[in-house]
Design a protein around this nucleic acid. Sequence first.
DNA 1: CGGACGCTTGAGACTGATCAAGCATAGTGG
DNA 2: CCACTATGCTTGATCAGTCTCAAGCGTCCG
Lengths: 230, 230
Amino acid sequence: MQLTPASVALVRGAAVQQVHRAETHEIAPGAGSGMNSPPTILPAGRVLFWQGDDQRQQIEICKGLVRAVRLFGNGRRQILAFYWPGDIIRAIRGSSYSYTAETVSQCELRWCSEVHLACGPTNRSGADQILGQVLPLLTAIAQKSTVARLAWFLLRVRNHLPPDPRIEGVLRIVFPRADIADYLGMSVETVCRTLSDFKTRHLIDLPTRKTLRIRDVSRLRKIAQGWSAF
Amino acid sequence: MQLTPASVALVRGAAVQQVHRAETHEIAPGAGSGMNSPPTILPAGRVLFWQGDDQRQQIEICKGLVRAVRLFGNGRRQILAFYWPGDIIRAIRGSSYSYTAETVSQCELRWCSEVHLACGPTNRSGADQILGQVLPLLTAIAQKSTVARLAWFLLRVRNHLPPDPRIEGVLRIVFPRADIADYLGMSVETVCRTLSDFKTRHLIDLPTRKTLRIRDVSRLRKIAQGWSAF
DNA sequence: CGGACGCTTGAGACTGATCAAGCATAGTGG
DNA sequence: CCACTATGCTTGATCAGTCTCAAGCGTCCG
């Protein structure tokens, strides 16, 4: 059995941290030198850093998808944000309210020193960055129905999902359904059912389980705005 | 009719901002001088600053209660945090994801320059501060039942609520039920019902509508942890 | 004293979670 | 290359939890 973070989280107490740390990615060589390290390729399901770590590096995502997640003792988790190619992860240092970063898919990453990017256009603190992600999420979860939340989510990730090379206009869904569920605060079953509903209503297509085509953006927008189911 | 922020929010578009600004508190004299201004007393329901304002001052709460809230066009709102005596509000500058600050009860406030407090023990950015409030709230709303959320809330505010001078061990609930509802993402009716349930189960007392006595902290803690109703 | 507002309780409907079963897909080893 | 298996996905049935609508009550303030 391979230990994925999700399954490991079912274990309680100190053992969690132990196993967790065992599979943490070793920081790339030369990362602390002030120069950018060369890109690193990581498979899916690897941890970049743990919540509570004193993370002083920034991580640039060249390819792939990374999720920011809070893990709880009862096996549940809350995904706070997704990071897409071009994003730079700035960790929250010295805060008990930080998060764990994991690769969702295979990733090409670049560790870089904090100083190097401090003056760039993305000059925001890690807290600022996460807050910009979490505030809309909070209001979506607190105020929208599951249907509206999922529509909102699809519109948000639409511009980030990589296109499927085989069919024009089709996007590759790089995350499992469980990630959508743990991001939007709903069950996997409801995610599936609602996606099927969207398909039935010709809002989207699901050519395969891992591909998506958005057919009616404007109607999806209307659904995403309101509370009501449809 | 008196225009409270909540009722004004029912209006749409530009008019909202207009009326809103009309009742904004005028910044205390001398606030920008680098010296602390003398304490200011404000009645309940006044706005300290608006979401999107370029707020460069910090506000120390000497007495009373302030709420951080995001207002939406459809009349809904999401309360992000409460600030209690001793707290210092650091606004989020230059971010579209900032918030509005309003007095919940009569308040004694002190405007102070940002520099003055930059080296104190509360040396955290505004984003850091809000994030520390919002992350636990997000996970509470996303993962707990309404019952667990309310128990969690009561335990959180317990140490901040001012004691009622008349009866020993009784606290004054300074916020209306609607504030609890808009903070925890539930309806006012559910807040009422759940409080009544807690009373029936001897977890709390409600001597009057505005007073509260917590009778069984440990049982309340158990309820606050789990998803299950009781 | 009257009215407005906030609080409380009830009835009903409906959303969404849970449990359960079956199916598709990708990965593995013969 | 083909079973075989593990995993993730999908759909159905059921029901608890929570919202909505509605009505009544208490309290505060003019």
